[in-house]
Simulated scan of single mutants.
Amino acid sequence: MASVNPATTGAPTFYELFAGAPVMAILRGMPVDKTVELTVRAWELGIRCVEVPVQDKEAGRVLAAVVAAGAERGMPVGAGTVTSAERLDRAVAAGAAFTVAPGLDPDVARASVAAGLPHLPGVATPTDVQAARALGLTWLKAFPASVLGVEWFRAMRGPFPEVPFVATGGMDAGNAAAYLAAGARVVAVGSALEDPAQLPLLAELLAH
């Protein structure tokens, strides 16, 4: 199986993208103005990484608007739900800095890295993890994290102590700390950014 190597493309690594912030924001299915508003809120909290899924053409336009807002502030913005060549093209056209997928597709992973975008694939089993690592992918997205549970992350520490996982799916300010303590390096939150009651809790999490 041919591997992918972000270093050969000059692409930023997820180590750089996630530096100093154990939280990523996922903003799905909202109008442009609302998405940009919540993205700015995330940046103000100290969340550097923002993902906007590109499941359709309108979502691609939303991503492009968030990328433009990020460019003004020096903030990277990624494309989520990149599961096909068409969606990857949409991400590239919008100016995404990285791509994320719910599962592992070797062709999409290779094409994304070849386009200069580090790829974060979804995994749920040890077999998924080994397949992704064999491709040269470093950071992996544990999805759906709330279904896998905190014990999944503790269990994965044994065979894969070197793998940094991003816990995605069902994450909020109430359970994020438990997943980080269990071994997740980053937690990805979505609707939590719309809840004013959760914002100070997220800020506290980022302060540690």
Rank of each mutant, 00 (worst) to 15 (best):
T125Y: 09
I26P: 12
R48M: 09
R87P: 05
R133I: 00
R41A: 13
G169L: 02
P196A: 09
A71Q: 15
M171N: 07
A111T: 01
P6H: 14
M30H: 12
F153T: 02
A19I: 05
P12D: 11
A134C: 01
V123D: 03
P53F: 12
I47R: 02
A142P: 08
A42C: 09
F153C: 04
A11F: 06
D105G: 04
G29K: 13
D105A: 07
V66D: 04
V32S: 06
D172I: 03
A109T: 09
A25Y: 04
A93P: 00
L120Y: 12
P164C: 01
D128K: 09
P200V: 09
G158W: 04
S3R: 15
S112Y: 02
A182K: 10
T83I: 14
P159W: 08
P102S: 11
A7Q: 15
S146C: 06
L137H: 08
K57C: 00
A11D: 03
N5P: 08
I47K: 05
A11P: 03
T99K: 13
R154V: 13
V40L: 12
G183N: 08
M24A: 15
G29Y: 02
T81E: 08
V92I: 15
A131S: 12
A124V: 02
E162P: 01
L199C: 05
F98I: 09
M75F: 13
Q55W: 05
P121W: 12
V113R: 01
D195S: 10
A59K: 04
V123K: 04
A69S: 15
D172K: 01
P200F: 12
P76R: 13
L104E: 08
H119C: 08
E16K: 14
A203H: 08
V36F: 04
L140W: 13
R157I: 06
A134P: 01
R61W: 06
A134K: 06
V62R: 02
F18R: 07
Y15G: 13
S191T: 13
G20Y: 11
L202P: 01
E51T: 10
G149K: 06
A42S: 08
G80F: 07
L135W: 09
F14C: 15
E72G: 10
A59S: 14
L180M: 05
P161F: 04
G122L: 06
G10N: 08
R133Q: 08
A142Y: 05
D33A: 10
A7W: 14
R154T: 14
V92M: 14
E151Y: 10
D56C: 09
G136C: 07
T8Y: 11
E151G: 05
G60Q: 03
Q130L: 14
T35W: 02
G149V: 05
A68P: 13
G95Q: 07
E151L: 10
A85Y: 00
L135P: 05
A131R: 15
I26D: 12
A97N: 13
G190D: 04
W139E: 06
L199I: 15
L63E: 04
R48A: 12
A59N: 12
A2R: 15
V147G: 00
A68R: 15
A79C: 08
P106M: 09
